[in-house]
């Protein structure tokens, strides 16, 4: 039959186009392409820590580390879905719950830094130079001075809420007036805070590497309650069979090893160390 050549030809053209596009979109990767996915936080990424330590690890092992940097809450959620091999976050209770529920093999301290409260030069709450974070928050609430909150279920947000509880203040009651919930990452929240002259709780690493400081400086620091502990967890390969268990374990072990710990300690900006390794004694590979 000679007739009806058109739809047949269109079909062939469509198929050919699709094949070509798939080829463009997925250029063949090297066969020995080994990588793991680390679900981590914006603070570790934005501070530049990973850019410093990961090349060292990759050079040694040949394992590429792909970091997905989101808030701690989302990172844990993603890992619960099996969409990551290693979890590196900073919210200890949530991390322990993650392990208890069988998603992670074990949680180990890996490093810490601390939180600081930063604020504008005119210091409306008069807290500049103090070291009692709880008292400072109370002063902010009394002065109804603007305060920007991550409000994104991140590690920093969880820490902030714990401090407010201790201060006996429910800031969410003032949400929309002096208490501003951005629902964004650390960097975005800093941008907002600087823009509106609000105090904000941030981890020190992000603050040091943040480039849009305006007239802001650290108002409160040095409170033991501002301690910021990071933990590392191998996602349980028995629960999540897609986990690249061997390479992921290599990474976790390296991070906890003297070599990895030294790499973390070696990251500085303007001569300031951003993260302080505090892993327990070297783990035995098992």
């Amino acid at each position: 039959m000679k007739r009806r050549p058109f739809p047949a030809r269109l079909g062939r053209a469509l198929a050919a186009g699709l094949v070509a596009l798939v080829a463009i979109a997925n250029p063949s990767r090297a066969a020995d392409d080994r990588f793991i996915i680390v679900q981590s936080t914006t603070s570790t990424q934005n501070s530049g820590l990973f850019d410093h330590i990961l090349p060292i690890f990759t050079a040694k092992t040949g394992i590429e580390v792909r970091v997905v940097a989101v808030g701690t809450g989302q990172a844990i959620k993603n890992a619960e879905n099996g969409d990551g091999d290693v979890l590196l976050v900073h919210a200890k209770p949530a991390e322990e719950k993650f392990v208890e529920e069988g998603h992670g093999v074990a949680r180990t301290d890996v490093m810490y830094n601390d939180f600081v409260i930063v604020g504008p030069q005119d210091d409306p709450a008069g807290i500049d130079g103090t070291s009692d974070a709880v008292a400072a928050l109370r002063a902010i609430a009394e002065a109804k001075a603007p305060f920007a909150s991550r409000a994104d279920d991140s590690g920093t947000h969880k820490k902030e809420l714990a401090l407010w509880r201790e201060a006996g203040v429910d800031p969410t009651a003032a949400s929309g007036s002096w208490y501003r919930e951005t629902g964004s990452g650390m960097g975005a929240t800093l941008n907002v805070a600087v823009g509106m002259g609000a105090y904000v709780l941030t981890d020190r690493a992000t603050w040091i590497s943040f480039a849009n400081k305006g007239d802001y400086s650290i108002a409160v620091e040095g409170d033991d309650r501002l301690f910021n502990q990071y933990g590392i967890i191998l996602v349980d390969p028995e629960r999540h069979p897609n986990v690249r268990a061997e390479d992921a374990r290599t990474f976790v072990d390296w991070m906890l090893s003297p070599e990895g710990q030294a790499a973390i300690a070696g990251y500085e900006i303007d001569g300031l160390q951003l993260f302080f390794p505090n892993a327990p004694a070297p783990v035995v590979k098992g």
């Binding site: 914006t42 934005n46 990452g185 650390m186 960097g187 590497s209 943040f210 480039a211």
Partner: peptide, 18 residues
């Protein structure tokens, strides 16, 4: 791996590198 123009812009913004 998956960093494109727009996600880089978002990242640099959050780093304060406006």
């Amino acid at each position: 791996v998956t960093r494109v123009m727009t996600t880089t812009i978002a990242l640099e913004t959050s780093k304060g590198n406006l």
